[in-house]
Design a protein around this nucleic acid. Structure first.
Lengths: 344, 344
DNA sequence: CTTGACCCTCACGCAACGTGAGGCCCGAGG
DNA sequence: CCTCGGGCCTCACGTTGCGTGAGGGTCAAG
């Protein structure tokens, strides 16, 4: 009733080499050898092999199988649970990867075959975004979703800005202001109008040189656009403010605008969290906003009133600013309660 | 602007060893070396590393990455599709495995911790079933679903049979007949009353010695039960048949019964496929049935009529036979059309 | 006596590094 | 000037589960 390796291999569906291997690592030693040194497997060996195969089918490592079979005090249920958890992790990982692949594939689905370099760039961008944004955020981030086309758009914008700068155009020129307005509106759109994402994007842009290289957006270009956008807004305020007021604002506006995104993001967070407009947190935000306002417009309540008037009359002042009517209303309420407090 | 390995490793999140490895396989050779032989990575090297990391994130092998980066004519989309397909296969496999593990784990969920041997046996049985049944079948097969408890039930039945045989009890004894009826009903239930699965189970039982060993069902026991079951049915026919007819049937019935499962499985298949009762296929099946009938009951139509009468009057003749009213009606129709044909 | 099918024992190869071992390089501090 | 610590270098073996020869016995059949 003893089988030789070849026979056992055929019956078990394994290879001879595999049985040799099991022998050499001590997992399944044939209980006998023929005079010529042939391995002879008995009933018990075959039974053990069956168990080995069963455990292997569960993905258990040969070392673990050996341990289990040789020390029957080990808990199989524990191991099974472990295996299940391991599998769950692996499956989740692979699903994530699959999604990313599908995403990459989808970016170029329509249209003709793009160059390898394009693919690689897209891929690189995607992995970069992966480091800065969560999967849920990525799912809603236009920059990520339409990577390839967005890249084209933005390199084009960057080229326009660069051209203006090469001509030594002033940020106050109408061309620069128009470009800045388009720029900011595009940015607002491509960050899904989410100020928090704008901040992450800025962060990413600051830290990743290769991103700057890809899009061709240098810090000089960034500064130029910021200034031009500030000028564009100042031009709108001009009709409502005195010459002195304008001089003051010109000196501080572009500077102070840097703090906007963070404040906006916090405001939006508070709003989304359902924080009441008269809650301490909301008041604190309103305080920050007032400070910002005073920073670029001075302390005169009259100036502030004029600015409010400008915003009522010039709806385009809200374009490219990541604000929504709801957000502005919330801010307005918070400021009002804060000032009512101060008035008491 | 040249980085040394350690620096690059920190920036890229890889290990020094990994960069060494990439160097040694030619995937990323630093573009320069210092006088002391230190690796110096330039901008281009860093860019290449970014691409490598991106592709690695997709699960591409280092060899493939090298090929892609060095021969830009290769199609990345093709590779991506390949990766997706690969992943899909892996995910499907792992899900299957996960299910099996959960199944195994579930078998012992309730009650106290069973012995390792029990787990291993259950596991072995499960892998054995896996070889004979498809995943869908397994999901509905009681033998598989309640492996551990079924195993207990059947070893108990086998022990009863063995006890009877040890007492040299006749298969004609009432005890043997009662056991055989219980046996067949249990078998019918545990194969979900599916004759095709009964056949697979028989097949499995014939080929897998370890199954026989586990359940303790030897071929002698099988034969004993078969004979006893035949006797049990013959006893019911006896009231309707003459002594001569009974003698003939006693000589052939147990023999011919072997062919039942196959015919039943084919009938059920035809019924499930919506094959009309007067289709050639159905007639052929009816022909096989008639042949079977003549094989154990002889050619006399009068005998056949008596047998039909017995079946009408003794509903227990249908117990443990994997038949359903629908199936019997279908068979009846097919036989009727066949005989009508023959009569013309 | 030869042939062909089995069997044996090394021993390298695979993928992507981890982990030392033994030794050179280099700037800072005594 | 010496030394110390940290970084760098080049081997080279280990990991997992076998595949794939190479070189050489064994055994029954022709």
């Amino acid at each position: 009733m003893n089988l030789r390796v070849g026979e056992l291999a055929r019956r078990s569906g394994l290879t001879v080499r595999t049985l040799h291997h099991y022998d050499s690592i001590g997992l399944l030693r044939p209980s006998a050898r023929s005079e010529a040194g042939y391995r002879l497997y008995g009933r018990a060996d075959i039974a053990r092999l069956h168990q080995i195969q069963a455990l292997r089918g569960l993905g258990v490592s040969l070392a673990d199988i050996g341990a289990i079979l040789d020390r029957p005090d080990l808990s199989l249920p524990h191991l099974v649970e472990q295996q299940i958890r391991l599998l769950d992790r692996q499956i989740a990982q692979q699903r994530l990867l699959r999604e990313r692949l599908a995403q990459l594939h989808g970016q170029f689905r329509d249209g003709e075959e793009p160059a390898l370099a394009d693919w690689l760039t897209t891929l690189e961008m995607m992995t970069m975004y992966d480091r800065y944004f969560s999967p849920e955020e990525l799912a809603a981030l236009p920059f990520y979703q339409d990577g390839a086309t967005k890249r084209e758009e933005w390199t084009a914008l960057a080229r326009e800005a660069e051209a203006l700068m090469r001509q030594s155009a002033s940020p106050r020129s109408e061309a620069a202001q128009a470009l800045a307005r388009r720029w900011m509106c595009a940015l607002e759109r491509d960050t899904a109008a989410n100020p928090a994402w704008l901040m992450k994007l800025n962060d990413m842009h600051a830290h990743e040189d290769s991103l700057q290289a890809q899009l061709g957006i240098t810090s000089a270009i960034g500064a130029f656009i910021m200034t031009a956008f500030a000028e564009s807004r100042l031009a709108l305020y001009e009709r409502y403010l005195s010459a002195d007021e304008m001089t003051f604002m010109r000196g501080h506006y572009a500077q102070r605008m840097q703090a906007w995104p963070a404040l906006l993001a916090d405001l939006r967070q508070a709003l989304d969290d359902g924080m009441a407009a008269d809650s301490p947190q909301a008041r604190q935000l309103a305080g920050r906003w007032l400070e910002l306002l005073r920073g670029y417009a001075g302390d005169d309540p009259e100036t502030h009133r004029k600015i409010r008037l400008a915003h009522e009359r010039e709806p385009s002042l809200n374009e490219g600013t990541w604000t929504t009517p709801a957000l502005l209303a919330y801010l307005g309420q918070a400021v009002a309660t804060l000032q009512a407090d101060a008035g008491r």
